[in-house]
Nucleic acid binder design. Structure first.
Lengths: 172, 172
DNA sequence: TATTGTTATACTCTATAACTATA
DNA sequence: TATAGTTATAGAGTATAACAATA
């Protein structure tokens, strides 16, 4: 490996007199990458890693068609094919024919898939706890609450019809 | 474009009875991606995008050698070469010979680079404000503070010598 | 002999296009 | 004609390896 000799980004920022507290982007990136890294480790043996988990978790609620699953998780439908190939090979999900449309396949976790999901969720919980390790119990709650509000807002904004799609709908 | 028909991830989670507040990973991902998207838009015309900005901002403090810059930002040294090629072509940074080592190059923003940096920082501030838009003023401060503490902790943990490197140092 | 920086090459991930089978 | 899913292919982005110049 040639890259990333781990020198602290923080140290140099402080040396330059920049206030860390003022840089949302830096903090957000560090925390997110740390969580991403920890959860990727937790999901290491799962085909598709974090995305394999998302597929498993999403399909666990109710059997979903491949294309819907892809749309929901924001992955390309071709990627979804590969992802499901691997998960199916590992015996974690199965493709069932959709009785109402013979072109479509319904994706559902197998029994083994459900068991794996339980275990994975427990491991992810540990990763979360580790990331929040710097905060006291009460602070964690506050942080989670505020973050969740930002996320809900961001999620809504991102999916709200924009000016263009509204305009398209209007010219009827 | 075939991918990502924007259906709300949130809606489906709620339909499944999962509590959003409990899922740190989901919230962190949504908020981070939203910030990443907004800041990428803000840095659209800058060679290298967000990473070009990081290079510019880091080199602005004091001229740095390419390899140090690469290590600090966690990018491969070969990627740094391409990045600097583009930034130099745009007239934003210059490679100066290091007087103390003729192999090395010191990277420093040009005057144009400094001007661009000012403008970019202003644009990034707007992106930050947009992401934090869901919170009241006092809440923003709390959120920033808690996030910063997590980030500082995570940054330290990530760069602290681990058991292996400590052991290596011991057998002297 | 080791290190800085460059270049060429290979690999990984993802998207595009073309295909089949249904509708 | 349009859609669900598959496959093959091409395209970014990134890393690996070999190289020249210097230490």
């Amino acid at each position: 490996m040639t890259s990333s000799p781990p020198e602290s980004d923080l140290r140099s920022r402080q040396a330059r007199g920049m206030s860390v507290e003022d840089d949302l982007g830096w903090a957000l990136g560090v925390v997110f990458r740390r969580y991403a890294k920890r959860s990727a480790e937790a999901l290491d043996d799962l085909p598709g890693g974090p995305r394999g988990y998302q597929v498993l978790a999403t399909a666990a609620g109710e059997a979903k068609r491949q294309l819907d699953l892809a749309a929901q998780l924001g992955v390309d439908r071709t990627v979804m094919t590969y992802l499901l190939d691997d998960l199916e090979k590992a015996g974690l999900v199965e493709r069932r024919p959709d009785p109402s449309d013979r072109r479509a396949r319904l994706i559902a976790p197998t029994e083994k898939g459900f068991e794996a999901l339980c275990d994975l969720e427990r491991r992810l919980q540990l990763a979360e706890d580790e990331v929040l390790g710097g905060l006291a119990e009460g602070e964690r709650t506050v942080f989670r609450t505020l973050l969740a509000r930002l996320a809900v807002k961001a999620d809504a904004v991102e999916h709200v019809p924009n000016a263009c799609s509204i305009a398209e709908g209007l010219d009827a």
